[in-house]
Amino acid sequence: MVWHRRPFPLTTLGLLLASLPMLAYLLFPLLAMILRINPSTLLTNLTNPEVGQAIWLSMVTTVCSTVLGLGLGTPLAYVLARRRFRGRSLLTTLIELPMVLPPSVAGIALLIAFGRRGLFGTWLNDAGISIAFTMLAVILAQTFVAAPFYIKTAIAGFAGVEREFEQAAMIDGATPAQVFAWITLPLAWPVLLGGLVMTWARALGEFGATILFAGNFPGRTQTMPLAIYLGFEQDIDLSLTLALILLGVSFLILWFVKAILQQQVTTP
């Protein structure tokens, strides 16, 4: 290795200097936000009913969309990880699209598909089901944008499980369902959990698709990111309060994911 022969401290110093601008750039805006708000306004705003409503709505909808992602995403991820068929890689790419699309595109797509005059919305409307501007619309918008994070991770998780363990269980007489429940799922679980938490975090931050598809109604469709955006126009302290809560929650989530992944590496 060449690295060991180089003068070590100089390299380290160079690296450190090169790392600083990006580090500072990423941290300063967050720091500025924390410094801007004074603790007493933070506490006053926390008791504001609109803040409480937004937090509550965000929690309920993100849990729903994450569970929806888990329930409907797991079989899809399993199929994509375990079966080889024509068009598989095309399908994987299509599923990942919502991750890179601007959320406003997702919002328009959902409106055109499930809106009252949308492709499927017209049938739903005839059946008496109206989705747009409801809490369900919020959940669907979040699921559309966030579920691919779980699916993508889960594919990797299932693909990483050693087939030999499953085959051994099969030989011992386990049914496919038993193998999945007792071997595959427990082995893939840490990765799946990591994917779920990322999905939840993405759903928590969802804004563009929500405001287009679900609109903005306090207590019904106004989640934290919407309240932050609209709050910016009337009461910046209110926005800052919610923003800080989101910041704190997101930090804890990422920390949690790291801890899980760490554990996964250390426990074979």
């Binding site: 409106l111 809106g115 009252r116 005059r117 501007f133 679900a214 609109g215 903005n216 109604f217 609209l230």
Partner: peptide, 21 residues
């Protein structure tokens, strides 16, 4: 009867034109 409070006039116009409201 209000289902949404939009953040600007144009988005109200678009959603009505689309038939969503």
């Amino acid at each position: 009867n209000v289902v949404s409070y939009e953040d600007n006039v144009r988005s109200v116009l678009s959603k009505i034109a689309l038939g969503e409201g």
